[in-house]
Design a protein around this nucleic acid. Structure first.
Lengths: 347, 347
DNA sequence: GACAGTGTTGAGAGCGCTCCCAGGAGTGGG
DNA sequence: CCCACTCCTGGGAGCGCTCTCAACACTGTC
């Protein structure tokens, strides 16, 4: 084991001295070795090895002005962050991609509304080169913060302001919510269902609205009594289902905007002795492993590649960073990821 | 808005100049202002405000040798990290505590076994002041890495090597697994159950072993046919339940080492038409929100305060860091957090 | 053989900050 | 009124690194 017990860690200076070269040459070797002759490269590399040299990150950042880290901002209120494996998977994808490009992931969980100041200060403080954020609510202050901090950002989920055409383009990655919804409703129709209801997600989340739009795309002028509002939670799904059943006891199918609500809806249907899928067919959205396969019956749902979305977000950000550094390269553009209908037993 | 559009951000030098003081005094004010007279403090503060000054983190780290960040190392193979809200909650608790002490959270997800090198290099590279890790497997290389890197670490879950008395003390935070198991089994006994089986977790995780020990504490010399092995997953729980039913069709209760397995067990019992809790009473462990309340019937289980555990881990680490810095303070000691029996319908 | 051109190396100037140390201002006691 | 002492402030070194620039060696050409 290299001598790391000597208290302070070896510096580039020490490496250079041991290799019998200047600090500048040692630095060149450590950073790739371009333009240094082979024998010297070897000598420096050996010195690095012998001393157990590890570059001092702070010193390097101080001069290069690059931190090699990006922030992941999660502004979701407690409840969802917990019960939702969505974030975990997305983060896993992000982590994979960042790791492959030697970039670190700083996790910024927003602790309540008053905490945005801290986040803003952090982003502006030069701690990170860029930011990834999940823009789930219309009033999200994160975009303004990253703009002011002057660092590139990529969003997960279509930010609401993209509706305004005049606004600056912020790249984002999102599943094809609208297309997926269309697919689900069309499937129910092909099954012969005619009174297809919808349990919608919260109006301040674009994914919920896009899914609602997709539902409407297929069922052109749909009866408003067939649509109930939910909040993407199990409980809200149960409530909405009860509401729908009361208003429209004749419904024969429900497209639910996410699996969590679908599981709540399923519970209510079971309690009332309504058979699924015989009497009422049910299709969810998300294909959330721990939910969709565990319900009784298992959910037919729209699946999205969550981890791939995370990877993609990271990739877009890294590309933006690269562009910033080299001054060239293609401008990152938003990406819509495909979805698939996963057939199980509920429809 | 302060003039941040001038390209490069203002330095301490600029603040000092504007306030008409030296850089040293400006630095003192920025770092608390001890030993600086009020009028000067105010002048500097005003300059900071006007210029929108934010300290350069890299420069500060370079001289203080403190990064103000800690790593959270998660070495869990993919599957569990996803389906398990455990980590999310634990991280939330960690984040809350760190944030309150102005410390950043760098997330290090281990991507496969070959990735440990990267983690080791990162920890040794002076990027972070300390590390939090979840030590779930006996062969976990993280402890060795942090020791070599010379940074303090705190573990989540009792590390297996704490069994060896000679080993150095590594502080950890863990739920009272053994006590909780005792509580659960005792409860089943008080219910009048006499043939209480156990579905155990994987043998390389101390939590599983501690729960098994607790089970044995109550049922002194238990018949080995009453114990089946699982892997903390829904599927493994189902398999173990089937196995138990085959070996001991007379069993009248099962204490399952976690809720995920309990939900699998429940499914098997339902499929066989065995009523819960009438014929077989079932108690789980973890009180995992999204599982325990959603099963049919809802699970009676042992609840632990996961978020509090995360907070505690962070607190212990911060204390160790403080100790390192000031050279005094109490040595952090491991903490066992209490558990409670949550009664629902399954027992 | 002189000269331009190419490739490799080292010296040294900072990056922005903290902190040690010395000097100056102010205070109280003898 | 002078001296010792305390309190506050500024000068300046230096944290470990990158990067520019100049010096140097070597090659090929006319």
């Amino acid at each position: 084991m290299p001598e790391q017990s000597t208290g302070s860690r070896p510096t580039l200076e020490a490496v250079a001295a041991r290799a019998g070269v200047s600090r500048a040459t040692a630095s060149r070797v450590v950073n790739g070795g371009d333009g240094v002759r082979k024998p010297l490269v070897d000598k420096v590399l050996q010195a690095v090895e012998e001393l157990g040299y590890i570059p001092n990150h702070a010193a390097r950042t101080l001069v290069t002005r690059r931190t090699g880290a990006v922030a992941v901002v999660i502004a979701e209120p407690e409840t969802r962050f917990f019960s939702d494996p969505f974030f975990s998977q997305q983060i896993r994808g992000i982590s994979k991609e960042l790791t492959a490009h030697d970039t670190q992931l700083v996790l910024l969980l927003v602790e309540g509304p008053g905490d945005f100041d801290r986040i803003a200060r952090y982003l502006a403080g030069g701690h990170v080169d860029g930011a990834l954020a999940f823009s789930l609510h219309t009033d999200d202050p994160v975009p303004a913060m990253t703009r002011r901090a002057g660092i590139p950002a990529v969003y997960g989920g279509r930010p609401s302001w993209t509706a305004d055409p005049g606004d600056q383009a912020v790249p984002y990655v999102d599943a094809d919510n609208r297309g997926g919804a269309r697919m689900a409703v069309q499937y129910l129709r092909d099954l012969g269902r005619r009174r297809i209801a919808h349990i919608a997600g919260p109006a301040d989340q674009t994914s919920a609205m896009d899914r609602l739009d997709g539902y409407r795309d297929v069922l052109l002028d749909v009866d408003p009594t067939l649509v109930a509002d939910g909040a993407f939670t199990v409980e809200s799904g149960a409530r909405a289902m009860a509401e729908l059943l009361e208003r429209r006891p004749d419904l024969d199918a429900v497209f639910v905007a996410n699996d969590l609500m679908a599981s709540g809806a399923l519970r209510v249907l079971r309690e009332r002795g309504i058979s699924v899928p015989e009497q009422v067919a049910l299709v969810g959205f998300d294909d959330m492993e721990s939910v969709a396969t565990e319900t009784d019956p298992p959910l037919t749902t729209v699946g999205q590649e969550i981890e791939a979305q995370g990877r993609l977000m990271a990739r877009l950000l890294l590309r933006a960073l690269d562009r910033e550094r080299t001054g060239s390269g293609d401008v990152p553009e938003s990406v819509i990821t495909p979805v698939t209908l996963v057939r199980r037993a509920s429809a």
